[in-house]
Amino acid sequence: MTDQQAEARSYLSEEMIAEFKAAFDMFDADGGGDISVKELGTVMRMLGQTPTKEELDAIIEEVDEDGSGTIDFEEFLVMMVRQ
């Protein structure tokens, strides 16, 4: 866990972390443990947004600390705390 990830967790109660985990699992449609650009786009479109591929890439790049091209749960928490 990076310093950013530990800091993000410090702002959240266990209840909030559990709620974010449920949301993360909804995004992680294939159950792979991370959110891909495609999965992020699908959920955002379900919520009425129309992000471009470039916008989706930028969202993932902003929090993808390990350079995997996807968002894992710890990175997702950082993203949610920043919102």
Rank of each mutant, 00 (worst) to 15 (best):
G67C: 07
S36D: 11
M79D: 00
M80H: 03
D34V: 12
G31W: 02
D72N: 14
Q49C: 10
L77Q: 06
T70M: 14
E14I: 02
R45S: 08
E74R: 03
I35H: 04
R82T: 04
M26G: 11
V78D: 10
Q83S: 13
M46H: 06
I17S: 02
I60H: 14
K38M: 04
T52D: 07
P51K: 10
P51T: 09
A29L: 14
L56V: 12
D64V: 11
Q49K: 12
S10A: 06
Y11R: 08
E74P: 02
Q83R: 06
S36H: 04
Q49R: 12
L56K: 01
T2K: 06
E55Q: 15
V63A: 07
A29E: 14
E55V: 10
Q49T: 09
A23Q: 03
L47C: 15
E39H: 12
S10L: 07
I60V: 12
E54Q: 14
E54D: 14
M79L: 14
I17M: 08
I60K: 04
M1Y: 11
G67Q: 05
S68C: 15
V63E: 03
M26Q: 08
L47S: 05
D25V: 06
L77G: 01
R45V: 14
E65D: 10
F27A: 09
E62K: 14
A6G: 13
F27I: 11
V37D: 03
L47D: 00
D30R: 11
Q49E: 15
M44E: 00
S36L: 13
E14A: 09
E74H: 01
R82K: 14
A6V: 14
R82L: 07
T2H: 04
G48W: 01
G33S: 03
L56N: 02
D66L: 08
M80Y: 05
G67F: 02
T2W: 05
I71V: 13
E75S: 12
D3G: 10
T52E: 05
D30E: 11
M80E: 02
L47A: 08
A18M: 08
M80P: 00
T70H: 12
Q83W: 15
T50D: 12
G67T: 08
Q5W: 05
Y11E: 07
Q83V: 15
S13F: 00
F20Q: 01
D28L: 04
G69W: 02
A6K: 15
D3E: 13
A29F: 00
K38S: 15
E65R: 12
S68P: 06
T2A: 14
D64I: 07
D66I: 13
E65N: 15
P51Y: 12
A58T: 13
Y11C: 11
E75R: 13
